[in-house]
């Protein structure tokens, strides 16, 4: 879920955590690649999945960036699952 947080420097940031059993890695990374230009994006991988951190977002899209990224990752994951890839 996209959660608005405050970074260590006090600047606002958003984190989105994707569960490995529901989202594919390729889907998450595709979303990160697409939204990389709208914020400083870092991905942290854990056993349960991936956490995407969005910092210094483009102010025009800051409110929706996490949700849009999550939608994109889900769409990609579903498409890949339908194409026969592992999700």
């Amino acid at each position: 879920m996209a959660e608005a947080q405050t970074g260590s420097d006090g600047a606002p940031c958003t984190t989105v955590t994707f569960d490995r059993s529901l989202y594919s890695e390729a889907g998450v990374l595709a979303a990160v690649a697409v939204f990389d230009g709208f914020a400083t994006v870092t991905v942290t991988e854990a056993e349960s999945g991936w956490t995407v951190r969005l910092e210094e977002p483009d102010p025009r899209y800051a409110d929706v960036l996490g949700d849009e990224l999550a939608n994109y990752a889900l769409a990609e994951s579903v498409s890949q699952q339908r194409a026969g890839g592992a999700a």
Binding site: D19, N71, L74, A87
Partner: peptide, 18 residues
């Protein structure tokens, strides 16, 4: 769940968690 979620992506933000 995937099928339904996919159809709603253009209307709402969908997020799945375990």
């Amino acid at each position: 769940v995937y099928g339904a979620a996919y159809l709603f992506l253009d209307r709402v933000y969908v997020f799945l968690t375990r």
